[in-house]
Design a protein around this nucleic acid. Structure first.
Length: 569
RNA sequence: CGGGGUGUAGCGCAGCUUGGCAGCGCGCUUCGUUCGGGACGAAGAGGCCGCCGGUUCAAAUCCGGCCACCCCGACCA
């Protein structure tokens, strides 16, 4: 690759409106260009990085025995009706219609398609299977952002495993977990594995691979001591147990004029927030439901979704609340409520002598025992963990950090094999419905994550495994014939040795070339200039360490190869 | 979808308040000088001022509508 032939130049100034560092640098260094919100063109430099990421993923997937497929992005709509996801995914699923009037969708993932292929499996002898592909996914995101981190069109490596039983699924899952750990290590992404909610996909065990970064959209709770880590949507902590003295034999009325918040009740009536029951009203699949939490706790929305299995949840409007309970938010409670479902956070279990609203404006109740006075239909973990709370495993103080979700693996179960009637015959001649796992990596998002982790003020700093140019050979002075000859020869030799090399043969001043090599993030640079060449020397510079050394012209290739090997080890 | 902001040369922006020749920096072309850390001089090229409509003798500028993009939120495998 010769720089003089690269069609898209680097930019002197930062592009406007680029929020994340990766976004800014990938634009400026000429790796990507935006077409519209959430859709990017991949330029030659970006394409090279993407190809290397794809290669690494492919190697590790093949290494665990997964087989590569390629399934269409455009799917018939009926497939998605059959799986039930047409309704679940809502507006996020792109829909279109062809000239015959047939309805189609642009696939967000490929469970439906891969399951139709799996229907040709006939015998238990054919299992287990792990199938994957790398294909463009389409998602009508409400708000694309941060460059490649959240887009509407992106490449995903998604794989799907089919096993006879839970033990087989566990093995496939662990194989993928290992492959993912190796992939992210090779990509230079310091991914940490966290417990996650499986969300709308269904299924049980769910592990996300998270790259800590301020540009991330997720929050994870992590224990610095024992390594416990979970998505905030799932994280729990060990709460200090609260000892309640026995209260009165029945709840007592407390007039609380003007009190509307937990704080009001605490400051004006001396009832600490952790002695209050917070009553939220949510509409879950059209059903008004009371959600109870300790006064000083926040509801984690995803936990409510997971606890109920419903995705269609919204806070109730004040009119709905008054019609159902006879009071407005600020004086709500669950005591005596028998006609509405009640879901309570486990932190309220067994509490006594608590305070809560009386379902009459400006009136509260004290002396409430949760077990005695409230008809709780479901106990669940609903509370959002806060930084500093003790780790449930070891008691150390939890920290909350932002992270980019670069991979997600989970045990799907039989949702799709059931929906599509996939069975194989077992050894006894009986029908077995295979159990599935699914596993995804966002390729361009991984590229952005690498850029987030590996950059400085001067530009990108790609790890050698994914660098678009592992070595940039800089002709410091293109008009010097001796320089040209030496640089061309080093370039050819490195190319022949299989290295990714970029020859900067532009007629530019040296400073421009040095800055650009740093901007695009070449791990190593060989400067071939008249000054050193007169002594038979060239300069080798490391982007990462800034170290530079002069070596004999005929030793340069060997020296750089040694440095590359060392960096990859 | 709610809130905020921005659309003017390839990129970054000024001009809009108070209507009157379309500007600046970078980049690009040509010539000359320069040449190991983003050079300098001279001469050039490059515009549907997001789109549609209105007001006006006259609109980048004022008014209305629409579109796009960005940020915050909601949303999200």
């Amino acid at each position: 690759m010769r720089w003089s032939q690269l069609h898209i130049p680097t930019l002197r100034e930062d592009p406007a409106d680029a929020d994340a560092a990766s976004h800014r640098l990938l634009l400026r260094a000429g790796f990507i260009r935006q077409l519209m919100a959430g859709h990017y063109s991949m330029l030659p430099l970006g394409m090279r990085v993407r190809a290397k990421i794809v290669d690494i993923i492919r190697e590790e997937m093949n290494a665990i025995g997964a087989q590569e497929f390629l399934m269409p992005s455009m799917n018939p709509r009926h497939l998605w009706e059959r799986s039930g996801r047409l309704a679940v995914m809502g507006d996020e699923l792109f829909r279109l219609r062809d000239r015959k009037g047939a309805d189609e969708v642009l696939a967000m993932t490929h469970e439906e398609v891969v399951t139709t292929l799996a229907s040709e499996l006939t015998s238990y002898r054919q299992l287990p299977q792990s199938w994957y592909h790398m294909q463009i996914k389409f998602r009508d995101e409400p708000r694309p952002r941060s460059g490649l981190i959240r887009v509407r069109e992106f490449t995903m490596k998604d794989s799907y495993s089919f096993d006879l039983d839970q033990a087989g699924l566990d093995a496939s899952f662990e194989a993928h977990r290992g492959a993912y750990a190796r992939i992210f290590a090779r990509l230079g992404i310091p991914a940490i594995q966290v417990e996650a909610s499986s969300g709308a996909m269904g299924g049980k065990d769910s592990v996300e691979f998270m790259c800590p970064s301020e540009a991330g959209e997720d929050l994870i709770a992590r224990c610095p001591d024992c390594g416990y880590a979970a998505n905030l949507e799932k994280a729990t902590s060990a709460l200090a147990p609260l000892e309640d003295a026995p209260g009165p034999a029945a709840p007592q009325r407390l007039d609380t004029p003007g009190v509307r918040t937990i704080d009001d009740l605490a400051t004006r009536h001396g009832l600490a927030a952790d002695r209050q029951i917070k009553t939220l009203v949510q509409v879950i699949n059209g059903q008004l439901t009371l959600v109870l939490l300790r006064g000083d706790h926040q509801l984690q929305d995803q936990k409510l979704i997971d606890a109920t299995g419903m995705t269609n949840i919204r806070p109730a409007q004040p009119e709905e609340i008054r019609a159902a309970l006879g009071a407005l938010p600020g004086s709500l409670g669950a005591v005596g409520v028998s006609d509405l479902p009640v879901i309570a956070d486990v932190a309220l279990r067994g509490r006594r002598d608590m305070a809560t609203g009386a379902n009459s404006d400006d009136v509260h109740l004290t002396g409430v025992d949760t077990d005695r006075d409230i008809r709780v239909g479901t106990w669940a973990d609903l509370r959002e963990v806060k930084a500093g709370e003790p780790c449930q495993r070891c008691g150390a103080s939890l920290e909350l950090i932002r992270a980019i979700e670069v991979g997600h693996i989970f045990k799907l179960g039989r949702k799709y094999t059931d929906a599509f009637g996939v069975t194989v015959l077992g050894p006894d001649g009986g029908k077995i419905t295979p159990i599935m796992g699914c596993y995804g990596i966002g390729v361009e998002r991984a590229m952005a994550a690498i850029a987030e982790v590996h950059h400085d003020e001067a530009g990108l700093k790609w790890p050698v495994q994914v660098a678009p140019a592992q070595v940039t050979v800089t002709m410091v002075s293109v008009k010097d014939e001796a320089v040209r000859t030496a640089a061309e020869s080093i370039y050819a030799e490195l190319l022949a040795a299989g290295a990714a090399v970029l020859l900067d043969d532009r007629d530019e001043r040296p400073g421009v070339k040095f800055k650009d090599a740093e901007l695009i993030g070449s791990p190593f640079r060989i400067s071939v200039g008249s000054r050193d060449l007169a002594d038979g020397l060239v300069e080798v510079v490391s982007r990462r360490t800034g170290e530079r050394e002069r070596v004999a012209v005929d030793q340069a290739v060997k020296q750089v190869q040694a440095l590359l090997a060392e960096a990859q080890a």
